[in-house]
């Protein structure tokens, strides 16, 4: 009993020790930056101190929040679009070899398009609304998820499939019972990569033209010589990405319970 009640505390301590170097590194960097700004006397219009970024950002919190909502919307809808389409295409590719040969080159070419060139064009074609942002987020996040799924299916143990076929399973059953669950860890690895791209893609799309959003907020702040507000918006976007990352990690944890189940006592 005592071992069980002590376990969460031990785990918390372990986690704290584990995270300590990261906190020290980030904290040290911010402190050095703050110190440099004060000691060198650089103008806040050139390089604002972290404290100024936070204070000014807080003063502007309403405007920041109003511009965060559309960015978050673009990110989430874009992500939903890329997740669903990546799944559909991954299944097509898995079942029909012809589709793999036909589609993969197209997808790879889509990854070679430079965002700088494509984003303004997409805005030109689809206007200043939410649509082009969703499209760009989907374009950027689609490929890592698709590749992860296709690789995950291929990583299925051969013996599982032979076993299922010997039991009388058809191809659809083999896919649902063996290939899809086998791909889950790969899928979540791809998801984590895609998430780090998603917010950045949304901001970039807004930067090329939008009514509201963090991207346009950053552009305006830059044009009115407010690097402190640029950095405040960057802070918000980083926080957004980290939050999405944490949500993905939580979903992964809940969806793959067998990966962190404790050892049973042998008998």
């Amino acid at each position: 009993m005592s071992a069980r009640s002590a376990a969460p505390l031990a785990r918390a301590t372990h986690l704290a020790i584990h995270a300590l170097p990261a906190f020290l590194a980030v904290g040290g960097l911010i402190l050095a930056w703050e110190a440099y700004v004060h000691l060198s006397g650089v103008a806040p219009g050139t390089l604002p101190a972290p404290s100024r970024v936070v204070i000014q950002g807080f003063a502007q919190r309403e405007a920041l929040w109003q511009n965060t909502v559309p960015t978050l919307q673009a990110t989430l809808f874009g992500f939903a679009l890329s997740l669903s389409s990546a799944f559909v295409f991954s299944v097509l590719i898995d079942f029909i070899p012809f589709m793999r040969r036909a589609l993969f080159p197209v997808f790879i070419i889509s990854q070679t398009l430079p965002m700088v060139a494509i984003a303004p064009l997409v805005v030109l074609w689809f206007g200043f609304g939410l649509m082009p942002k969703i499209g760009l987020v989907a374009l950027v996040t689609f490929f890592p998820i698709l590749v992860a799924l296709v690789q995950g299916y291929a990583a299925t143990e051969k013996e599982l499939e032979t076993l299922l076929r010997a039991m009388g399973a058809n191809a659809a059953r083999v896919f649902l019972t063996a290939r899809l669950p086998s791909a889950l860890p790969y899928f979540f690895a791809g998801l984590r990569i895609a998430i780090t791209y998603a917010v950045v893609a949304a901001i970039f799309a807004e930067y090329s033209g939008a009514a509201r959003g963090l991207g346009i907020y950053i552009l305006n702040a830059k044009n009115s010589f407010r690097p402190d507000l640029v950095l405040a918006a960057v802070l918000v976007s980083s926080a957004l990405t980290l939050c999405l990352f944490a949500v993905a990690a939580a979903i992964e944890y809940a969806a793959t319970p067998w990966r962190h189940a404790g050892k049973a006592s042998r008998r």
Binding site: E157, E159, L163, L164, A166, M167, A169, T177
Partner: peptide, 24 residues
């Protein structure tokens, strides 16, 4: 058929692995 190694599905609990053939 019982393959080499156990070929239990790691994502299924033991009971669900045992019923796999019957469910299929």
């Amino acid at each position: 058929y019982m393959p080499q190694r156990d070929a239990l599905m790691p994502w299924r609990r033991i009971i669900d692995n045992l019923t796999l053939g019957l469910e299929v």
